[in-house]
Nucleic acid binder design. Structure first.
Lengths: 197, 197
DNA sequence: GATGGACATGTCCTAAGGGACATATGATCG
DNA sequence: CGATCATATGTCCCTTAGGACATGTCCATC
């Protein structure tokens, strides 16, 4: 249920419409926390029903801007300070890496090179963003300060992944256990063992 | 739909039961790709219906071991080489970091210290696992070679996060825009601007 | 031989994610 | 003035995730 608190956190900066919030998610937050507009509108409705946000104004084309209420602010602060962090990571690239041994050496090298390029590029984007902030381009409000901290995480994470993908290209492909030794051959599906225990 | 391919990948190493697979997810894979047993049994059923796996043997207590079929192996290889990688990351800790400005300085320091401890510990676990592999404790099969590559990613990712959390503790908390300058005060909810554009 | 515990598989139900589609409205420009 | 585009909000529906609960089975041990 982090989307709920994500929305509250964004609204703590000031009123915004569902459209605004959806843009922020798709433009900058998308890499660390994806959220499509259907979910956002639905959640805003629920938040309003629960009294955590309220409609601040109705704008030009049906635009509704929401403002966080005191209850909403209390809720997001409570979440930040009292609720356990969920450290779950769901990284498909890492899951795939477990199965690299199923790939041709060529395909694998291509794959890793593409991954390295991808991560390097994202890391670079975050780095530039960080620089602009450090040059004072976005002011020095508490919000942008926190943004700076988040960006730093992006830089470090994606740099680490880029380095990893580079490094992985240098790992020699393990031969499918052929000529290394006489190889006690019959061990016919090692993971099988119908372990009763 | 990565669980499907995750299961196929694991079964490519050799036959296993739903219980075995669930344990592998909860013990070692849980950090990078969580999966509970209800999903696993359901997906195994679907995989069997689609002919990508088949029941290899029935063991002691209703135990059913599944074996990957040729079609299943082809499917997972196709996924690895041809299907685009999903780079989506969903990191609650990073989402939270955007809202650090809403926290007391004390709470934030406590939070960051706990985060640093957590990431350091996980990184250390991965590091030890990598060492054991490098000492040859797990042999040198292609599978364990790939495992080694995945572990390396874990080491680097969690080290990066640990360093980040340490670094973040040194970032001075931005004062809520008070005494820094005369401060053109009236700019009443900067994010509001009912942008019609 | 009864009982408790680890093994093993499964269902049920609700919530969350997300693609596809629908619709209203104001702005722009020929 | 009519067409078209970007803005803005929403619904529908299917899939995936995951907590809670239920059941069966073999083993140890008292």
């Amino acid at each position: 249920m982090s989307l709920r608190h994500g929305l509250l956190g964004l609204l703590a900066e000031g009123p915004a419409s569902g459209y605004d919030l959806a843009r922020r998610f798709s433009e900058t937050l998308g890499t660390i926390w994806p959220a499509q507009h259907p979910k956002i509108y639905a959640e805003l409705g629920r938040l309003a029903a629960d009294g955590l946000v309220e409609v601040e104004s109705e704008g030009p084309r049906r635009r509704k801007a929401y403002r966080i209420t005191d209850a909403g602010l209390a809720e997001v602060k409570h979440w930040l300070s009292e609720v356990d962090v969920d450290h779950t990571m769901r990284l498909q690239p890492l899951l795939r890496s477990l199965f690299f041994w199923l790939m041709d050496a060529d395909d694998l090298q291509r794959h890793l090179a593409a991954e390295a390029r991808f991560y390097t590029e994202i890391a670079e984007q975050y780095r530039q963003y960080a620089e602009r902030k450090d040059r004072g381009e976005f002011g020095n409000s508490p919000q942008t300060q926190s943004m700076r901290v988040a960006i730093e995480a992006g830089v470090r994470l994606y740099s680490a992944l880029a380095d990893w993908a580079e490094w992985a290209q240098t790992v020699p492909p393990a031969k499918p256990a052929k000529s290394t030794k006489p190889a006690k051959s019959t061990k016919p599906a090692r993971a099988a063992k119908p372990t009763t225990r």
